[in-house]
């Protein structure tokens, strides 16, 4: 730990910092919605921010790949004229947990693979990410230690750790440094504070232990052996195909593309909207063939997509251990 990369924000300056930050560019942060539910929303003051929160109704990936997004505007009144659209706005996301940062790292890989997704990458370039450490498990669904996502591992501009009286902040990029400069509330971290951070991380190693009795390196092999397992039938029997598990997943990225004409039928827009491999029509193709008609097959696909297929393609698990999928299912497949 080099001290020059670490600064301190005293808690009584938190409100001032958040309101200053919100004046620099659009600022979003976790906000309480009651009933122990949270969502990322635009904020302008510190008191709106839920510094302690459990995974939000939708993960912050929604700022990089919005639920609904226009891709193209077209006019067909004389020939075909079309204009590509890239919706983006400079945005700071404050308070992103390490699981969601890991999810964004997965999405970065996918959307940078050719053919590159220009819309995603443009928005990524316009987004500043400020992480926030979980000092303890956020709920009983999390399995972040299994996939090593409970400690910071890059993918952010600034990273906040709550030390009680103050936050200690890791400055990771130039964009992060610019914020520190502009916000003015920060002091350089002293040796004691760096030591306190190191001992907090030590303590975390005691709290966060692999939650599942398996060596994570053996997971792909285990999946190879369980392709024909009965467990998929059991999951399929309980799944209500509501799509919540994929919508809340920090690494899921499937979408459907649709055209919407205006009323005069002379032009319109092409847009995309999140899709889910768990819903009935997802794998229905021309001729009305559905090649994953059974819920059991769809559940199997979901798990293989996280723990097997992408290991070959991107050399990492596409699970961040956030537990949101389990928590969000009315049916609770766990």
């Amino acid at each position: 730990m080099s001290s020059s990369q670490y600064v301190i924000l005293r808690k009584d300056n938190f409100d001032g910092f958040i309101s200053r930050l919100s004046k620099l560019q659009k600022l979003v942060a976790p906000v309480s919605k009651g009933h122990n539910n949270f969502s990322f929303e635009e904020v302008t003051s510190g008191e709106e921010v839920a510094v302690r929160y459990i995974p939000t109704i939708l993960p912050p990936k929604k700022y990089l790949m919005p639920q609904r997004e226009t891709l193209l505007e077209f006019n067909v009144s004389k020939g075909l004229e079309s204009t590509p659209v890239v919706e983006h706005e400079k945005t700071t996301i404050f308070g992103v947990h390490t699981c969601d940062i890991a999810g964004i790292q997965c999405l970065n890989m996918v959307f940078s693979t050719r053919p590159r997704d220009f819309n995603y990458l443009t928005r990524k370039g316009a987004t500043t990410i400020i992480g926030l450490e979980c000092n303890d498990y956020c709920d009983e669904y999390a399995s972040c230690a299994l996939v090593n996502a409970n400690l910071p591992n890059g993918g952010y501009d600034l990273f906040f750790t709550d030390m009680g009286e103050y936050f200690i902040v890791h400055v990771n990029t130039q964009a992060g440094e610019d914020i520190i400069e502009a916000a003015k509330f920060f002091e350089e971290a002293g040796d004691d504070q760096l030591k306190a951070l190191a001992s907090l991380r030590e303590k975390k190693r005691e709290i966060f232990k692999n939650e599942v009795p398996i060596d994570p390196r053996k997971i792909p092999e285990l999946f190879d052996k369980s392709f024909d397992s009965k467990v998929w039938e059991e999951l399929g029997e309980r799944c209500i195909a509501c799509g919540n598990c994929t919508n809340v997943c920090p690494t899921c990225y499937c979408f459907d593309v649709k055209d919407e004409m205006n009323l005069e039928l002379k032009g319109g827009r092409r847009y995309r909207v999140w899709d889910s491999c768990q819903v009935e029509p997802f794998a229905t193709v021309a001729g009305n063939h559905n090649f994953r008609k059974e819920r059991a097959e769809r559940q199997k696909h979901r798990y293989f997509r996280k723990f097997r297929y992408h290991v070959d393609k991107y050399h990492r698990l596409f699970c961040t251990g956030c537990g949101a999928g389990g928590a969000a299912e009315p049916a609770w497949l766990g």
Binding site: G34, N36, R68, I240, G243, N244, N247, V248, V279, P281
Partner: peptide
Amino acid sequence: YHVPDYAVCVECRLNENVCMYEK
């Protein structure tokens, strides 16, 4: 035109509602 054949929950989640069952 295909009437969507998935649960209302799909759109409900995209709209970030707190689920009624949670309430």
